[in-house]
Design a protein around this nucleic acid. Structure first.
Length: 573
RNA sequence: CGGGGCGUAGCGCAGUCUGGUAGCGCACCACACUGGGGGUGUGGUGGUCGUAGGUUCAAAUCCUGCCGUCCCGACCA
């Protein structure tokens, strides 16, 4: 491709509405263009990247034996009534509309309903199973708050696959195969990632695994052991109970703590280690109006774990201050388990092994010190309700946990019969009886991967694309070709040679631009390899090579450019 | 959905407090110079100041409604 015939529209200024680096660089580099909040056009340069990722995904899905199909973007509301999700998603997410006959429709945020409808008519016999259908297609979700450019867009491109089985064992084997396929996809994209145990959320089903690209801007926290044998979303990672060390109990003391309403305030006011303090959160209960959740002062509540407690009402809701006042008799900030008799108390494992700790005295402006469980408190329930922190022991016993941020780019689920049962998707089994199919579903955010790849691969000059997904693998920049026929001839010959060798190369033949502009732009756009052709080195029959990632250069003999690039790109000649 | 910020040329912004000829930088067009790190000069193009209404002799500026957009939170297969 010649730059003179290809739209490149970079801008120097950082767009004011782009917060994170991938969004800024995609806009600055002219890869995408915003049409509305969370809705973007893919410009020619950006589309090349998107297509690269799609092709890797398609390739590996096909290799796994899955079959590609394409389902409609618009879906009849009736189908969603059948699965029960029309009402469930009544507020937000589902963008609904009506056709001219006043019939309900929605833009597909996902395609379980449509694929299950296809499966129940296409699949009749257990002999046809298992089958795994996939598509790469535009989805629309009316996110309450689109943000981060293509990382949380409303309209986005996703690969979604749905498998059908006649047994859980069969589902399990496809699930494992998809695990391997996703691993292969992300490996080919040259991204650093982790597959982690995850909550299956509102899509339902049992086991699920998320794939996260590691990046500091990630919205999720993932915990994993150093040896890689354990990895889970922090939502799910189990906090083990520490060993209790038997300490002699001291006498309970009530101390005045005027206006000390936060843990950090109490810690500095009383000059005690934060690990010896307790905080108490009051939430709405399922069997009682209120429930107390107790954590060590330096720990945070894991809402997902708390929500699963039988005592707690779903969804987890912090109690209103007025209810706390009337039931407990003090404001939040002075609550504590000691003497708290009018609601159940659930204590985190780590808090439950403390001796002589500090907590609120259930009276504004007072705390207790040297509190001890049982002696000073009513009956308690011990549970795992906190988020793990870095350094916690790994739940599988292998070393300590490390915590990193990740961008969720893939999620695979074992759905079971959540959709097939209500939608009556059955096949006849060997005995000729109707049997509800078991389903799995597997998603990869294709457009999100574009952003995730940049979050993980950039520097202060711009994007550093992994070669496998770069819009072009090589850029050839002639210097002052309009003045030097030699430069023009060599750069054109190199360009043709590289193309012939199957390398995707962009020849920056735009005459009106000065070299500095081309260099800066090349670094912004992030071509992995750069060849500069100028009279300076041409005298020695050489050109200048620069690797984008290291920005280190070297002079290469013209005759060896193709061979060296092929080997840098890992291609056999 | 709660809290906050911002809407002025394609992009980034000033002007709004204190009402009175709509500005700057980048980009774009023309010409000249320049030609190895977003170069220089000269001359230009481009704006119903988000929108609807109100106050006023007069509104980008004051008042009210609406819309859009971004941030924090809630939410998120």
């Amino acid at each position: 491709m010649k730059a003179s015939q290809f739209s490149i529209s970079t801008i120097k200024e950082t767009p004011s509405d782009a917060e994170i680096v991938s969004h800024q660089l995609l806009i600055k580099g002219g890869f995408i263009k915003k049409l509305a909040s969370g809705i973007y056009s893919w410009m020619p340069m950006g589309l090349r990247v998107l297509r690269k990722i799609e092709q890797i995904v398609r390739d590996e899905m096909d290799r796994s034996g899955a079959q590609e199909l394409l389902m409609p973007v618009s879906q009849p509301g009736e189908l969603w009534e059948e699965s029960g999700r029309w009402q469930l998603y009544d507020e937000g997410l589902l963008l609904k509309f009506k056709d001219r006959h006043d019939r309900d429709f929605c833009f597909g945020p996902t395609h379980e309903e449509v694929i299950t409808d296809i499966a129940r008519t296409e699949l009749r016999s257990h002999k046809q199973l298992p089958v795994n259908y996939y598509q790469i297609q535009t989805k629309f979700r009316d996110e309450t708050r689109p943000r981060f450019g293509v990382l949380r867009a409303r309209e986005f491109i996703m690969k979604d696959a749905y498998s059908f089985h006649n047994s859980l064992d069969c589902l399990q084997s496809t699930f494992e195969q998809m695990h391997a396929t996703y691993t292969q996809i992300l490996t080919r994209m040259q991204l650093e990632f982790r597959a982690v145990d995850a909550d299956s959320g509102s899509i339902g089903g049992s086991g699920s695994i998320e794939f996260h690209v590691l990046a500091d801007s990630g919205e999720d926290l993932i915990a994993f052991s150093a040896d890689g044998s354990y990895a889970a979303n922090i939502e799910l990672a189990e906090a083990l109970a520490p060993e209790a060390n038997d300490t002699p109990m001291k006498a309970l003391t009530k101390v005045e703590t005027p206006n000390q309403k936060t843990i950090s305030a109490v810690v500095s006011f009383l000059d005690v280690p934060v690990e010896t303090t307790i905080k108490t959160l009051i939430v709405e209960g399922s069997q009682t109006p209120l429930v107390a959740l107790v954590l060590r002062g330096d720990h945070t509540l894991n809402t997902l774990k708390a929500e699963k407690l039988p005592e707690v009402r779903q969804p987890l809701t912090l109690a209103a201050e007025a209810d706390i006042q009337s039931t407990i008799g003090c404001a939040p900030g002075s609550i504590g388990p000691a003497g708290l008799n009018n609601c159940p108390i659930v204590v985190d494992r780590s808090a439950g092994v403390l001796y002589n700790f500090v907590c609120g005295a259930n009276e504004d402006g007072f705390h207790f010190t040297n509190v001890n469980w049982h002696r000073d408190t009513p009956d308690i329930v011990i549970a795992d309700i906190r988020n793990v922190v870095s350094g916690d022991p790994s739940p599988n016993g292998n070393g300590a946990l490390d915590i990193r941020k990740g961008i969720e780019v893939g999620h695979i689920f074992q759905l079971g019969n959540k959709y097939s049962a209500p939608m009556k998707a059955t096949v006849l089994d060997a005995e000729g009886k109707a049997q509800t199919m078991v389903m799995g579903c597997y998603g990869i955010g294709v457009s999100r991967l574009v952003g995730a790849a940049i979050e993980q691969n950039h520097d202060d000059k711009g994007i550093v694309w992994p070669a496998s997904i770069a819009p072009f693998q090589v850029v050839v920049i002639p210097i002052n070709a309009h003045k030097s026929p030699n430069v023009e001839r060599v750069s054109l010959e190199l360009y043709e040679q590289l193309e012939a060798a199957g390398i995707e190369v962009l020849l920056d033949d735009r005459e009106q631009l000065r070299p500095g502009v081309k260099f800066a732009e090349a670094e912004l756009i992030g071509y992995p390899h750069r060849i500069v052709v100028g009279d300076r080195t041409l005298a020695n029959n050489e050109v200048e090579y620069t690797e984008r990632r290291t920005l280190e250069g070297a002079n290469w003999p013209i005759s060896e450019v193709t061979t060296r690039l092929l080997s840098a790109l890992g291609k056999a000649q």
